[in-house]
Simulated assay, not measured.
Amino acid sequence: MSTEPLLVRARGLWEGLAAAPVSFAPVGGVDVVVSPESGMCPAGWVGLVSLGGSAIVTAPGERAAAIVRDALEVLPVAAVTDADAVRGVLPVARVLGPAMLAYLSPDAFRPVRPGAQAVEQLPGEHPDLRRLEQLAGEEDTGEAGLREITSPAFVLREGGEVVAAAGYRSWPGRTAHISVLTAPAWRGRGLARVTGSATAAHALAVGLLPQWRAGVPASRRVAVALGFEELGAQLSIELA
């Protein structure tokens, strides 16, 4: 699959999550719509997603949409999901992101062999995953979202304890939203690549589009190593 089919599927996903008539322009442009039920951001916030050089934005009401529409006119499309740039033109109270959005096609996938460590499958509600979340801490656990996965969890153990895990949550548009979490003491050893690879392989095998959303450079590097292609970014803001 080339970049264009990936982009078409990714755009279709986010246009659906917008929960209002909106579309990415074929070349450039920002489409701002009112959507109180938007799935692109928390309720009452403004959601901004850029993909392939175009962007869509959802606002909770008419007044917010008008403010955002006027403000974003002065920004290039590439800056619509740049938190600092958006703060420069809008009164922002809180921000989530930005996070890069990367997608994987079967022909670009670069699977990772687990080596001496066997990848085990666990149900998403398994208590060993909750123990891993305790080790990782509240912030990283919330970012990873392992509690939300609908797939099996693909895990690595050390001394009987789960030290890394990944899985995916089924999203609209036959999308697999991937979650990855590694215990702090075990980071930097390639474990996320192994569990992430097993998760991506499972998603591709059932015809889903793997999506990797990452804000930190280390997570983005894992995605790129597996063959994911970064096509855009997501940002959520609460207006002051």
Rank of each mutant, 00 (worst) to 15 (best):
L48E: 00
A176P: 11
V8G: 03
P106W: 08
L90H: 01
L231K: 09
R130D: 10
S236V: 09
L209P: 10
P114W: 00
V112E: 08
S54N: 04
S236Y: 05
S35I: 03
A43Y: 04
E139H: 01
A183V: 06
A225C: 01
P184I: 00
E73W: 02
V27Y: 11
D128L: 09
V57D: 12
G12V: 04
A164S: 15
S179I: 09
G167D: 14
P91I: 06
A108H: 13
P21C: 15
P98G: 02
I67C: 11
I67P: 03
E158F: 01
R221K: 15
L72E: 14
D82S: 06
V216N: 11
V119K: 10
H202D: 15
A25H: 13
P152Y: 04
I178T: 14
A83D: 10
D140C: 02
E238Q: 15
A185P: 00
E143Q: 14
P123G: 10
A176S: 12
A66W: 07
V194R: 11
I178W: 09
P21L: 15
A79I: 00
A136E: 12
T81L: 04
L132N: 10
A203C: 05
A25C: 09
V30H: 02
L90C: 03
S197G: 14
D84I: 04
S105D: 10
V119W: 13
E238P: 00
R87M: 00
L146R: 10
T141F: 01
F154P: 07
P217Q: 00
F109N: 06
E133R: 05
G160C: 01
P106Q: 12
L132Y: 06
R193Q: 13
V155A: 08
P91N: 10
T182H: 06
A10M: 06
T175E: 07
S54H: 09
T3R: 14
D70A: 13
T175W: 03
G227P: 09
A79P: 03
R94N: 05
